[in-house]
Amino acid sequence: MINRAVFCMLISVFIVQGFIQASSVRVHAETTDVILATTTSTQDTGLLDELLPVFQKKTGFRIKTIAVGSGQAMAMGKKGEADVLLVHSPEDELKFMKEGYGKTRRLVMHNNFIISGPPEDPAGIAKSANAAGAFKRIAGSGSLFISRGDNSGTHAREKALWKKCGINPEGGKWYQQTGLGMGQTLSVAAEKKGYCLTDMATFLSMKDRLGVKAFMEGDGSLLNIYHVIELDSSRFPKINSRGGKSFADFIVSPAAQKIINNFGRARFGHPLYYPDAGKTEKSIGR
């Protein structure tokens, strides 16, 4: 009986200690926490794991990464639920800025989208000249296409491509939406032997396991551009604008750009992202 009581007390002390720790972190959190709403790809590739410790050590701010699609990240921004955004959906970003939610928007880096598909290439997209041509072939042959369907930056780009070739894929039997992140959507596409639009970084980290092939590599129309957006603090008094600015300044700084440039070289033989701080979208070919 006594044993049991002591044991229960020990367990309770352990748990309550955790509880107190959790809540004390919170009080301390108010001033130093910065909420970064970003896309799943920056987290899934591991880039943020390299960047954030450097930033945190340098500035003392702690970044809370909320990895969602670009669409959801901007929705969070529109409600003032995030302090800074790292997103890749340029058209939506311009709209976001125009509506006055953001204070600054700076170019951070880019890589490329590609079309992933089964090596047999049933739609014969290898023969097409560009991504729009490939999409036409996929629709024309009724080959399976797996879409993110989640308003992410990748999904926005995919919709723009369908629009460009004048095809409305919705409702087609060959067109399916997962509503999941990039990695999972890529897995579904591979499993069903379908095509999908993906960013290069996620593709590289999964291709060996999935047995998929990249198409439209180096197509200039498939640039995938990331911007960092500071939110307008006059609109949202509760946001940590100092922290948000600090992170935005950091990610375009030479130190961070160097990390971005080197990231993934060891594992994949070439970088996953190309640093672009200070450049314009035009100069990188958009």
Binding site: Q43, D44, D49, L52, R62, T65, G183, Q184
Partner: peptide, 24 residues
């Protein structure tokens, strides 16, 4: 919780994330 590394990442959320990354 937001699945924040070293702060609010627990076994279930980490499992979902690693699945998403393809680290089955």
């Amino acid at each position: 919780g937001g699945n924040i590394r070293g702060y609010s990442r627990v076994l279930t959320t980490a499992t979902v994330m690693e699945t998403g990354k393809g680290n089955f």
